[in-house]
Design a protein around this nucleic acid. Structure first.
Length: 440
DNA sequence: TCTGGGGTCCTAGGACCC
DNA sequence: TCTGGGGTCCTAGGACCC
């Protein structure tokens, strides 16, 4: 454990929803829900106004609609989120060379490695400076900041500070601070582990400390039991690790309705394989292992994988292997989700040894039929929240669409609340706007 | 028309090698 | 004439994180 609170954790508040409210003035102060809008979608992010109605991340969208029917439901603009994320990460990079980005909206910074003074008063000042830089540089997004002697405690700090706050956990006070918090606060304790712990009478972090070491080991296995016992006393010396290399690349699709037709599955797989191969090539990487993932209507998930003699990056090989793996799976129960992933990544192609073949016999001869049901899989041309531009009305966003019409509100972050107009959905004057940072 | 998508890490068994 | 021990690779499943 470090002796000063030099680990900083930053978390952007209700990030996706906040970007939408920044760029769509008519939504400021209102409930905004970003997520999958299809019949099987879930919530990615809810604005704080929507959270008051009990809407939260990972909630099924139909449930969110029931709880907060008057919210704005948007499908998300990931290019815009990435652009703001980059601005924030660049600010963190100015504080220290040791920045570990956990996700698009969250990161750790090792301030000791940045050559800063270590007294708490100085660090609080630095954290507040960072928070105001974030607001200014992103055009109004807020971040919560935690400062502590470890990753775990810095993250607890930002959680307690949320939203739009800062919390420094003074060295020496960590164990007392976390004692009364739910055991779920500890990183690595999810729903399943929490259920197991609950059977041992555990609710809070302090309850974990009271368990016999043997009890914990029996329930969770030795290595996890040991690190959990340490974390329960806030002992955590994990380093901030920048630049972790990518280990796998994958795509998956949940179908709007369960699919029984192998031709539809094969068509989806072809698009997925092309997507994965394209991302591999964009990253200059090659992969040896290809994995197919299937989720059945009962939610059971199965994977089938094959490791090739050489590393590849071409669509054809990945597609052929994935189709071959699919042919070995039963689809008569119907398929809810289908996905393809690659792993065993290398930065050079690995030619198979002489006499070896990358593919085994039989892989090439898979279904070759064109798909009739493609229309079912195609999304609407206009998605709620999407940026558009009209040749006479200027820039705006899709408010809703259907029945051959699309409704647009013409406003941007800079305009204030703008007017709403409706067009034919194939109006040639209306075009999707290229999103900043969407093509990386 | 309950329950996403993109990842990471861990475990466990079997094959295979020395 | 009955059976080791370690290490690595591969496959499959599952928990967890945001």
């Amino acid at each position: 454990m470090r002796s000063h609170a030099t680990i900083l954790h930053l978390d952007l508040d209700a990030f996706f929803a906040a970007v939408e409210q920044r760029d769509k003035p008519s939504l400021r102060g209102k409930p905004v829900i970003v997520g999958g809008l299809g019949p099987r979608g879930v919530v990615s992010t809810a604005s704080y106004e929507a959270r008051k109605f009990g809407v939260g991340s990972a909630m099924p969208m139909h449930e969110a609609r029931r709880r907060c029917p008057h919210a704005a439901f948007l499908s998300g603009r990931f290019g815009a989120y990435r652009a703001s994320s980059r601005v924030v990460m660049a600010l963190l990079g100015q504080l220290s060379p040791l920045v570990e980005q956990l996700s698009v909206d969250e990161a750790f910074v090792d301030l000791a490695a940045g050559g800063h003074r270590l007294e708490s008063a100085y660090l609080i000042n630095l954290g507040e400076g960072l928070r105001s830089d974030v607001v200014r540089e992103t055009g109004g997004l807020t971040a919560s900041v935690g400062l502590g002697t470890s990753k775990f405690i810095a993250k607890v700090g930002s959680e307690l500070a949320k939203p739009d706050g800062l919390r420094l956990v003074e060295p020496g006070t960590e164990a007392d601070l976390i004692a009364p918090l739910p055991a779920r606060t500890i990183p690595g304790i999810g729903p399943v582990t929490m259920e197991r712990l609950a059977r041992l009478g555990v609710r809070t972090v302090a309850d974990i400390r009271r368990l016999e070491p043997g009890e914990l080991t029996r329930e969770l296995g030795r290595s996890w039991a040991e690190s959990l016992a340490e974390l329960a006393y806030a002992r955590d010396d994990r380093a901030v690790e920048p630049e972790r290399e990518t280990k796998s690349i994958s795509v998956e699709d949940t179908f709007a309705a369960d699919v029984f037709d192998r031709r539809v599955l094969a068509d989806s797989l072809r698009r997925d394989a092309a997507n994965v191969a394209g991302r591999l090539r964009a990253a200059g990487m090659f992969a040896r292992t290809i994995t197919l993932k299937v989720k059945y209507p009962d939610f059971s998930t199965h994977t089938r994988s094959r490791t090739l003699a050489g590393a590849v990056d071409d669509t054809e090989t990945i597609m052929a292997v994935a189709l071959g793996l699919l042919s070995g799976l039963d689809v008569t129960p119907g398929v809810r989700l289908l996905g393809v992933g690659v792993s065993g990544l290398a930065s050079v192609a690995q030619e198979p040894l002489f006499g070896e073949d990358v593919l085994a016999v039989g892989d090439e001869e898979v279904v070759e039929e064109v798909v009739p049901a493609i229309a079912v899989l195609e999304g609407p041309r206009w998605s709620p929240g999407q940026d558009v531009v009209h040749s006479t009305h200027g820039q705006g966003w899709v408010w809703g669409s259907g029945l051959g019409r699309v409704t647009v509100r013409f406003e941007t972050a800079a305009t204030g609340v703008g007017p709403v107009r409706t067009f034919a959905s194939d109006d040639p004057e209306l075009l999707p706007l290229e999103q900043p940072g969407s093509n990386d």
